[in-house]
Amino acid sequence: MRNLVYYIASTIDGFIAGPDGADPTGPDGFWPIPEDYIQHLVAEYPETLPGQARAALSVTAEGTHFDTVLEGRRTYEIGLHAGTTNAYPHLRHLVFSRTLTESPDPAVELIAEDPVATVRELKKEEGKDIWLIGGGELAGALYSEIDTLIVKLSPMTIGTGVPLFSDKAGFDPRTWDLTDHTVLNSGALFLTYSRRTA
Score class of each variant (00 low, 15 high):
112 A>M: 00
112 A>H: 04
112 A>D: 07
112 A>G: 06
113 E>K: 10
113 E>S: 11
114 D>M: 04
114 D>I: 10
115 P>F: 05
115 P>M: 03
115 P>C: 06
116 V>R: 01
116 V>F: 01
116 V>I: 12
116 V>H: 00
117 A>D: 05
117 A>S: 14
117 A>I: 12
117 A>C: 09
118 T>Q: 08
119 V>W: 01
119 V>N: 00
119 V>E: 00
119 V>M: 01
120 R>D: 01
120 R>Q: 06
120 R>M: 05
120 R>H: 06
120 R>S: 01
121 E>I: 10
121 E>M: 11
121 E>W: 09
121 E>G: 09
122 L>F: 01
123 K>V: 12
124 K>I: 12
124 K>E: 12
124 K>L: 13
125 E>P: 03
125 E>L: 13
125 E>T: 15
125 E>F: 12
126 E>H: 13
126 E>P: 14
126 E>D: 15
126 E>F: 13
126 E>G: 13
126 E>V: 15
127 G>L: 08
127 G>T: 09
128 K>H: 10
128 K>C: 07
128 K>D: 09
128 K>S: 04
129 D>C: 07
130 I>M: 12
130 I>C: 05
130 I>W: 06
131 W>L: 12
132 L>V: 15
133 I>E: 15
133 I>G: 13
133 I>T: 14
133 I>N: 15
134 G>A: 12
134 G>R: 04
134 G>N: 05
135 G>Y: 14
135 G>V: 09
135 G>F: 14
136 G>D: 04
136 G>T: 14
136 G>K: 01
136 G>L: 09
137 E>K: 14
137 E>C: 13
138 L>Q: 08
138 L>V: 08
139 A>E: 04
139 A>W: 13
139 A>C: 01
139 A>I: 13
140 G>I: 12
140 G>D: 07
140 G>F: 08
141 A>Y: 08
141 A>E: 11
141 A>D: 09
141 A>S: 12
142 L>K: 00
143 Y>C: 02
143 Y>R: 01
144 S>Q: 06
144 S>K: 07
